[in-house]
Amino acid sequence: MSAIQTAYGDAVTADRLLVNLDLNLLVTLDALLRERNVTRAAEQVGTSQPAVSAALARLRRYFGDELLHRIGNRYELTPLAIQLAARTPPALASVRRVFDVSTDFDPATVERELTIVTSDYAATVLGPIVAGLLSRQGPGVRLRLVQTTPEAVDHAADTLRSVDGILLPHGFLTDTPHTDLYEDRWVCLVAPENDLVGDELTLAHLGELPWVVLFHRPTAFAPAAQQLRMLGVEPRIDVVVDGFLQMPFLVAGSQRVALLQEHLARRIAPAAGVRVLPCPFDAVPVAEAFWWHPMYRADPFHTWVRDLLVEAGRQVAMP
């Protein structure tokens, strides 16, 4: 039998399994794996406890696994259930998106969740504008902003299958559909009492002062920091953080320096009590974009979301 025939046979078998499988079980499975309790799962899906117990019995037969096993007065997930707990939410989200598609799309009447993976920078600068536009144009759309991680970016192809998109500057992803939103400049932060720095920073300062940096991993870096290394300046790293919002407060009262996006720096520098100074080199600007999976290219809801984000980016860029 050829590889093509084998693949076709596997696909037919999978289709037959889906025909005989009640997709409502996916909703119940998701609730059971999250709640680890039949009564609470029943409340989550809006059905009776006996109905959920019956669904659990069917799921156990289907997977040939207990899924939930009792330890004392509580339930724990089996190893297989732990694997399913990671796969079920994305699968459920994909099923919902299939049935959300409509040729007569009206954002004023849609009821769904918009999930975007983002840094705390974009969530702070762009998030309030997006939330305001949604409340006016799509009041039934709930916005969920999920904090990004290096793993989410490193495995963006997988990440984008379970969310609506990622807010991320250019320089990290390739061969992925995106919508450009706005540009931002890099600035430097120093404490007012840092007597090593006068009215301006120099490249010599950046090589001598201790730094606060984000993540500090090969695939997780600010492009401007990488550019600095290309100029022969290797930052002396003192503190590593996983969010931009922490940086000004770790610069305050110290001799540390940090690179931060200007739109964010102008918002939070006063609260942290730090100075905002121009970069002493021609730092490549932040080109913020919305990255999304190709399956959403013609999706009416997603097309509307991309237009809304472009409008939000325009408002960010306004002087």
Rank of each mutant, 00 (worst) to 15 (best):
E35H: 11
D199S: 15
G132H: 02
S94H: 09
T174Q: 14
A258S: 15
A57D: 10
L17I: 15
P128G: 11
P280R: 04
V141G: 00
E43I: 05
R185V: 03
A298H: 12
W186P: 01
L32C: 03
F99Q: 00
Y62R: 14
A269L: 04
D158I: 09
Q44G: 00
P280S: 06
L114A: 03
R297E: 12
W304P: 01
A41S: 10
L145S: 06
V117H: 05
L189C: 06
F105H: 03
R314V: 07
R74G: 05
R74M: 11
G9C: 09
S48M: 04
P218S: 12
T78L: 13
L67W: 09
L160C: 05
G138S: 09
L308Y: 03
A11N: 00
T149F: 11
S48K: 01
S254P: 02
V45N: 02
G127F: 06
V197W: 15
V240M: 01
L77E: 12
L206C: 14
A283W: 08
A31S: 03
V27P: 00
L145C: 06
A317G: 07
A55W: 01
R275I: 09
V101E: 12
G243M: 00
A123G: 13
G165T: 01
V240A: 04
L18I: 10
D199H: 14
L167D: 07
V257R: 00
A271F: 07
M247R: 01
A11M: 10
P79R: 08
P280Y: 10
T179R: 09
M1S: 15
V52I: 03
A289Q: 05
D154I: 07
V239T: 14
T109I: 13
S162R: 02
L134A: 04
